[in-house]
Design a protein around this nucleic acid. Structure first.
Lengths: 199, 199
DNA sequence: GTCTATACGCCGATAGAC
DNA sequence: GTCTATCGGCGTATAGAC
């Protein structure tokens, strides 16, 4: 951890404006189609040069973004695990979160589900090796040992369960499905859960 | 259709070498991380300039690639539909094809499942509006009217079914799942089919 | 901390000899 | 049809005034 402050109120105003603008633009046009000039403009500063007082280079913006998103996701998952005992309830909480984020902060979900992160951050850990997602695998593993989830390779169970969830969200984010995420939530949860539940 | 010849034996040798090299590099590093110099080198020609005798510009390479892949996919799907009557069998045939391609031509599946195509081909039709994928939706629609598949929005059924299939394949392609696609095929088919079947 | 100005490199693309 | 050579532009990044 480099920063003392957390995600909500970081060092300076513009520091955050830059991150916010970058998130929006990356989600919208992709990393390579977004220039520092674009980001500067969207962040309310007139020149790209000013960005270098906040980030060493362009990649660092994406790196910080990635870290922040995964960090707050990790925190949310901790909270969900604390508030719910059964793996099924914990997974349900995560699904709730994902659907809520899709409606309320679609750029974050775009970043997680649609962007090919290691195309512009070759050094970054793949999502699945990230603290947040390791915890998800752990929840699934618990679900298996407690008899809620079928006894299959936890990674496969993850692939099936989140294959359904994430693909549905992806289609919402790209506009292929035209209602709000909320409209599909309960039905999609049921199908996903059914794909892994022990019957 | 610009070309008279089909995908298998196009105009010239190098024309195909270029496409093949580009496919490989795009799948491996992404479109924006691949320069025409890279492609030239991988295609066995010494200079990037020579490429322009085969393609108007870089985008056209990707466009041709995309068209070729979708074309041959479309043909395969026609064949599958011809050889199989029931929607369930047709879907099974498509799943077979996808798993086979993942093992035997992973770059093609990377192109389809992992690359964010409209990031470098903004004009291109989204996958789902493509002839091949419209036929897949049609198969699902038939499955619903014939009573094999549950009566839900065909697009949602597609999201669920291929969410499982594609996410599994994606994890194989990225190395998160370490066996060959074939090893997961029958199990994954069952789970995916179960997610949409009318019970 | 933001501005102006500018350096630098890389890549896409073109011209023209062979 | 492939080569050499080169142009032009854009985008990252830096230097230095304010």
């Amino acid at each position: 951890m480099d920063q003392e402050k957390d995600i909500a109120h970081s060092k300076t105003e513009t520091h955050d404006e830059i991150l916010l603008a970058a998130l929006k633009l990356f989600a919208e046009k992709g990393y390579f189609n977004t220039s520092l000039t674009d980001i500067a403009e969207a962040a309310g500063i007139k020149t790209a040069g000013a960005i270098y007082h906040h980030f060493k280079h362009k990649q660092m913006i994406a790196t910080a973004l990635y870290a922040n998103i995964l960090d707050s996701l990790n925190i949310s998952i901790d909270e969900i695990r604390r508030k719910n005992q059964k793996p099924s309830e914990q997974l349900h909480g995560i699904v709730d979160l994902f659907f809520k984020l899709t409606d309320e902060a679609p750029e974050i979900m775009q970043f997680l589900l649609i962007l090919k992160i290691n195309e512009f951050l070759p050094e970054a850990k793949p999502l699945l090796e990230t603290a947040a997602f390791i915890k998800i695998i752990k929840i699934i593993r618990n679900g298996i040992s407690e008899g809620e989830i079928r006894n299959i390779d936890p990674l496969l169970a993850q692939a099936y369960f989140f294959g359904i969830i994430n693909n549905t969200l992806r289609m919402i984010l790209t506009g292929a499905l035209d209602k709000k995420a909320e409209a599909y939530q309960s039905q999609t949860w049921l199908v996903a859960w059914n794909a892994v539940v022990k019957k």
